[in-house]
Each structure stands twice: as C-alpha cells, then as structure tokens.
Design a protein around this nucleic acid. Sequence first.
DNA 1: CAAATAATGAACACATAGTTCAGGATTATA
DNA 2: TATAATCCTGAACTATGTGTTCATTATTTG
Lengths: 197, 197
Amino acid sequence: MRNNSIDRRVLRTRRALKDALMALILEKGYDSLTIEDITERADLGRTTFYLHYKDKEELLLESILEIINDLVAQTRASGEQPILLTFQHAADNADLYRIILRGEGVFKAIDRLRKIVAQTIEELLGEALQEKSARDQVEVKLQIPMDVFVNYFAGSLLGMLTWWLEQGAPYSPEEMTAMFRILFFQGANEVLGVELV
Amino acid sequence: MRNNSIDRRVLRTRRALKDALMALILEKGYDSLTIEDITERADLGRTTFYLHYKDKEELLLESILEIINDLVAQTRASGEQPILLTFQHAADNADLYRIILRGEGVFKAIDRLRKIVAQTIEELLGEALQEKSARDQVEVKLQIPMDVFVNYFAGSLLGMLTWWLEQGAPYSPEEMTAMFRILFFQGANEVLGVELV
DNA sequence: CAAATAATGAACACATAGTTCAGGATTATA
DNA sequence: TATAATCCTGAACTATGTGTTCATTATTTG
C-alpha cells in the first residue's frame, strides 16, 4: 500500500511560510516584501522557499485558496444562511479577508473611488431627506444607518461596473443604468417574485 | 507679472509617461513593468523619469486621478443622472477603468471570490425558480438577465464586506446580514421613503 | 538502522532601482 | 534674437533582490 502522506518537514515548511507571509503583509504590506523577509521570519533558508513555490504570488494564492475553500465547504455543509455564514467567516478571518478584498498594491485607488461615490450619494441623500422633512413637517428617519446605506450603494455600483467591464460591456450604459436602478431601488424581491436565501 | 504656466517640455514628458504606462499596462500588466520599459516606450531617458515621479505607483496614481477628477467635474456640472453618467464615463474610458477597478496584481484572487459567490447564488436561484414554476404551473421569468442579477448580488455583498472590514467591523455579522437583506431584497425605496437620483 | 528525502548556506549571474554629474538641447522672456 | 534658466541625456556607480547550482548536513520514513 502506497503511503500518500507528505513528509512532515514539507508540511511544517509550507505552514511556516504561509504564516510568515500573512503576518508580514499585515505589518508592511505585500508589495515591499522580499522572499528573504518571508524566509527569515519563518526561520528558513532562502533557497528553501524555491523548493516549494515559484514566487510570492504563488504562496499568497495558496494561502487565500485555503481560506476560501474553507468557506465553500462550510456553506455546502450547513446549507442555510449563507449570507450570515459569509459575514461570520469573514469576521473569523478578518485579517486574511482584508488582504483578499483590498487587493494590495493599487488598492488605494479603488478605495479612493469608492469613497468619492459614497460621499457623493451621501450629499444627494442628505438634501432629499431635508426636502422631504420640510415638506411633510416631520422628521424623516432612515431604517438603515447612513454609512451602511451609502457604502452599500457605492459597493454595488462599483461591483457592477467591475463585472460589466471585465465582460467587455455586454450591455449598453442605458441598459445597465436601468437594471441597476431597478435592483437597487426596488430590490430583488420585486425582480424575482420569489423568496430566496 | 509672473507666468505660472509649466514648461512645455515638462508637460510633454509627463503626458508621454502616462500614455506609455497605460499602453503597457494593457499589454503586459502592471506588476512586471519596469521604469525602463516605460521610458523606452515614451522615448525618454530613464533618468528623466525620476525628475518627475518617485516610482511607478506615483505615476499610476496621477493617471488615475486625472480620469476620476474628470468624472467628478462632469457629475457636478450636469447635475442630473449621475448613475448613467458614471456608466457612460466608464464606457468612454473603459481601459483605464478596468485598470482602476481590477486593482492589478492580486486581482485574480478577488475575481475568483466574486465568481464563486455569483455561481453559488445562481444555483440557489435556479432551484427556487424551478420550484416556483412547478408550484404555480407557469413559466417564471426574471425581469433582469440572470448574469446581471447574480453579479449585482456578488458585487454588493463583496462591496459591503470590504467596507465593513476596512472600518474595523463596526456592526455585528447579524446586524450586517439583516441590513444587507433589507437593502438587497426590499430595495432602497423601501428603506428611504424618498425618491432619489 | 539504512535509504530516501529535505533543508542549508555559500557562490554566482543577472535584472532593476535609484542617484550623481557634466554637457548638450530647448524654452521662456527681456 | 540673445541669453539666462530650465530640462533632457547618457554614462557610471552602488545597492538590493531574484533565481539557480551544488556539496554538505539534518531529518524522516519504513
């Protein structure tokens, strides 16, 4: 019978490299890290790194896939409440999720764009609410905190943009606008006529 | 009277560097680009680069800000239809927007995550729709194409996650889930009681 | 215990970053 | 248009990181 298990030294080495990478990203960011930084933190020789990974990117990818696979497995297993499960999983692995979602490197640019969108919509919303308050002679209150609301909007919009552009803009700007407005303002239930999730 | 304008050579050089950077990113990606790649494409000496920018990142940031400022100016000027304007602006500058939104570098990881979410929701949705069709004895049709719908969902969710985590998780997973569900399923009009945008 | 496998560290060639400087080219302006 | 100010250039140099080779040592497996 052939033993399919991997040498302990290999498992130890790879675990040490992944842990070192994560710790260092959170300390100094991804881009400026060198292979030597990682192996030094992991207490390994630099050449050892190349026995396991091609470069930094490959190590990062394996680390990320590890956590994503865990989420997918949990979702498939428990079957219910996948949205809640996702938020919980993100909370439990917040450091790693931050690394995944922020992208690292050019992240600041996306972040800036999102902030601009959020701020713009907040100004518009503030005006509209004030108008309504004055007209109706009552204090208008949101069901949802302002910061959540405006960042939901910004996230949705930028998410749609990203996907749309990566597909090669398969719909016209007008179509995208119409569909986005329906989804955002009327909500998914209106669109579906079906209860979901 | 002091002339405040900048030397033509400087303007020409910076324009050439930005154009070269954009062209090269679309050809070979951002990470692997060297300063020499850029100056060579721009027909400039390598040392000239350092007279204007600290590094690649600074050049990219200036290029991106140029386009974002243009969008902001247009939005402020025309005043109406900001969503449509954003989609149009993105279409007019699709290459650059792709660079901004994709992040470059570790982008593949985010992309993979988004695809997984979109695929998962598509499976769930497919089942729910089939069930409803069988129960009601009618063909259920979506008002919105499936691909748009599922990617709106994935984008919204990941956008919320990103923002939430960057803020240091100011709400609990349960609160986030509840708010996300209201926004996604019932829509913004329900939340606002106000017409907007 | 023996054979197989992994880790190590020194040495090497190579690519890129970032700076300095003297000289030639271009621009602004008086 | 002359000239002072400014910019571009290219060679040279230091420094740092990459990726590989190889002989030696250490650890694991059966």
